[in-house]
């Protein structure tokens, strides 16, 4: 692995090659969508979906674990061919990158202590503390709609849960599947529950139109191929099986 990296590094100057496997980046810090297993291997919904798409579209893909901060700039610079990381489609992002067809419409939920009796509305949460992962659609949503609440933003997906159990935040909002998988099913989350309505992109523009694979703006050929793959796995039931595996509770 390392030797390979060194070899790659030696060729600082490289011409764009289409024959090589596609470089697909993911930020594997967001279970159950993308994370590493105990051996450092990439696992999760997005990973399985991407592998299925590549197979269906007969693309050779190399999915690599990357740092979030560099992913969108890396895509624009051509360092990566595509990104899959529960990326929500927004107009702002459309200006700099292209998206495949939307493959998932995630549900967002608040989570709070059982029996806290919180009224999930801008008025009901006035003066309360909302913990949220920074730079996410959830962050954009509470920032726009909950001006009377104190919003605490964290760099990672796990930190808001520590704030919640530590009593430093009253409520947290995230992808429902992430809340269930990473928190409610763990020992730490047994006294907590999902609260408030199921939110989707239809409720607020901040949640985006849905989740899609991001592709470089100039690479319309790849957009087409990925969409072909997506259509295929939608038809043959692979996508449905994946949804069942990850989102059915």
């Amino acid at each position: 692995m390392l030797r390979l990296k060194l070899a790659l590094a030696m060729s600082l100057l490289a011409a764009p090659a289409l024959a090589a496997p596609l470089n697909i980046a993911t930020d594997a810090t967001f279970p159950p969508f993308e994370s590493i297993d105990a051996n450092g291997k990439l696992v999760g919904y997005d990973i399985e979906l991407m592998e299925a798409v590549c197979k269906a579209a007969a693309l050779e893909c190399n999915i690599a674990n990357a740092a979030w901060d560099g992913m969108i700039p890396g895509l624009i610079d051509g360092k990566y061919d595509a990104l899959i990381s529960q990326l929500t489609v927004t107009d702002k992002r459309r200006r700099v990158i292209a998206f495949s067809d939307i493959y998932s419409h995630p549900t967002f939920r608040f989570v709070a202590k059982k029996g806290a009796g919180l009224d999930i509305s801008p008025e009901g949460l006035a003066g309360k503390t909302i913990a949220v992962q920074t730079g996410t659609p959830m962050d954009a949503y509470v920032t726009a709609h909950y001006p009377q609440s104190t919003i605490k933003r964290y760099d990672t997906g796990s930190a808001p849960y520590l704030e919640l159990t530590g009593g430093r935040a009253d409520v947290h909002i995230s992808y429902q599947a992430q809340v269930v998988h990473s928190f409610l099913k763990s020992g730490a989350g047994k006294d907590y529950e999902l609260v408030g309505p199921e939110l989707t992109g239809a409720d607020a523009p901040e949640f985006g139109e849905g989740v899609a694979i991001a592709i470089g703006k100039r690479n319309s050929e790849l957009v087409e191929k990925v969409n072909e793959g997506l259509a295929k796995i939608r038809e043959d039931g692979t996508l449905e099986a994946l949804n069942k595996k990850y989102f059915e509770q």
Partner: peptide, 12 residues
């Protein structure tokens, strides 16, 4: 890797 493990397990 530590960050990856921390986020995968929820045990930072």
């Amino acid at each position: 890797r530590a960050k990856g493990a921390a986020e995968a397990t929820g045990q930072p």
